[in-house]
Write a protein that binds this DNA or RNA. Structure first.
Lengths: 214, 214
DNA sequence: GCTAATTTAGCACAGCTGTGCTAGGTTGTG
DNA sequence: CACAACCTAGCACAGCTGTGCTAAATTAGC
C-alpha cells in the first residue's frame, strides 16, 4: 500500500483549505477543484475522502463549529473560579466576551462561520448544524444568567427565558457589528455595553403595567 | 421602433425576478440566464438593460433597500402622532417594531436582504449599500431614543451613543432570530422583550463603579 | 409605405463546474 | 518477490456560466 494516510487528519486538512478559500474569496469559490488546488492535491484525491462536494462543505462547517466550541469550553473553565470570589458580574462578562469575535483568530472564525450561515438558507444539513451552534450559545447565555441569579446579581422577578433571549440577541447583533463595522463597534465599546447590560439585570423589571404614565 | 419600453420599470421587473430566485434557491442561482427565464425574457434582453451580471445584482439590492426604506419611512410618519399624547414608550416601540420582520412581507424582504448581506463579504459595492441600510436603521434607533429623552422616558445619565448601539445590536439580533428560529422568537415574545428593554431606559445607569459588591 | 431607432432572440466562445471512472503508482504484509 | 490494499492522477462527459456579437423583428414618425 502507499503511505497510509490518517483519514481524520486529511479530512481536517481539506476542511481548513475550505476555510481559507471561504475567507479569501467566499464560499461559492470553494469548488472541488479549487479546494484540491488550495490543499495541493489532485481533485481525484479530494474525492477519495469526500465523495461529494456537499459532504466536503458540511464537514468543513462541522469542523469549524467544533473548533469554536472547544475554544469556548476551554475558556469557560478558566472563568468559573472568578465567580467564587464575589466578582460575579465580571466573571459573567468574561464568559460572554468569550463568545464574541474580539481578536483576530475569533474574527476569522466568525467571518467563515458567517459565510456558512448564509448557506444554511439553501442547505438543510448546514441549517441543522447552525441550529446546534446557536443552541450552544444560548445555553451559555442561560447558564450565565443562572449564575447571576444564584449569586443574587439578577433580580428574581425577571423571567430567565426572556432575558436569555434578549442577551442572546444582543450578542448576535454585537457579533454582526464587530464583523461589519469594527470602527463603530470596537472591542472596548462592546465590552462596556455588555457591562451595562449585565448591571441592569440587578434592577427588578419595570413591567408595562407598573407605570400608568407610559 | 418596437414597443418603447419604460427602462426603469423593466429594470425593476428584473430586480424582482432576482428577488424571487434568491428567495427560492439562493443568490448563487441568480445567473443571467436564470433571471431571464424567471422574467420570461431572452438572456440578450436582460443584457440590454444590464450590461453585466454584477450591475444587475447590485441594482436588485439597491431596489430592495429602497423598497424597505420607503415602507419604514411611511410607517414612521404614522406613529409620530402617538408621541404627542403621553404614550411615548408605546410610540417608540411601534417605530422599532416597524424595523423587524414581523409579518410575511417583511420576512420575505429580510430573507432576501440577508442573502445580499452575505454577498457583501465579496463585493465592495454591495458592502457599501449594506452600510447605508445599516446607517438608516441606526438613525432610526438614535431618533427613537432622542424622543424618549425629550419626553423624559429615558434617564439623562445614559450615553445616547451607547444606548443606540445596544438597541441597534438588539434589533439586529432579534431579526436574525426571527428569521432563523421563528418557533423560539415569536413576534409576541420579541415585542415583549423590546418593551422591557425600552422601559429599563428610565432607570439611571448603574455604572460599574457604583456598587463595590460587584 | 419607408426609414430609422429600439428591442429581441439567440448563436458562439472560452472557461468553469460536479462527478464517474480508470489506470497507475506506492508500499505494507505474507 | 509477489500480492493486494490504498492512494493519486487525471481524463471524460454533460452541463452550466458570463459575455461578445449579430441578425432579425417591431413600430413611431415622416
Amino acid at each position: 500500500m502507499p503511505v497510509r494516510i490518517d483519514h481524520a487528519e486529511r479530512r481536517s486538512l481539506l476542511a481548513q483549505a475550505v476555510w481559507r478559500i471561504t475567507l479569501r474569496d467566499g464560499l461559492r469559490e470553494a469548488s472541488v477543484r479549487g479546494v484540491a488546488r488550495e490543499a495541493e492535491l489532485a481533485t481525484g484525491s479530494v474525492r477519495y475522502f469526500f465523495s461529494t462536494q456537499d459532504e466536503l462543505l458540511r464537514f468543513a462547517m462541522r469542523e469549524l463549529i467544533d473548533k469554536i466550541g472547544r475554544r469556548i469550553t476551554a475558556g469557560a473553565e478558566l472563568r468559573i473560579a472568578d465567580a467564587h470570589e464575589g466578582r460575579v458580574v465580571e466573571a459573567a462578562l468574561a464568559l460572554l466576551l468569550e463568545l464574541l469575535p474580539l481578536d483576530e483568530e475569533r474574527r476569522t472564525e466568525a467571518l467563515i462561520y458567517q459565510a456558512f450561515v448564509a448557506e444554511a438558507a439553501n442547505d438543510s444539513v448546514i441549517a441543522e448544524i447552525r441550529r446546534e451552534a446557536d443552541d450552544g450559545v444560548r445555553q451559555q447565555c442561560l447558564h450565565t444568567l443562572d449564575s447571576l441569579v444564584e449569586f443574587g446579581c439578577m433580580a428574581a422577578s425577571r423571567e430567565i427565558e426572556s432575558e436569555t433571549e434578549r442577551l442572546h440577541a444582543l450578542l448576535d447583533g454585537l457579533t454582526a457589528h464587530l464583523l461589519a463595522r469594527p470602527e463603530r463597534a470596537s472591542p472596548a465599546r462592546v465590552e462596556g455595553l455588555l457591562r451595562i447590560h449585565l448591571h441592569e439585570l440587578r434592577v427588578p423589571v419595570r413591567y408595562p403595567g407598573d407605570d400608568p404614565s407610559i
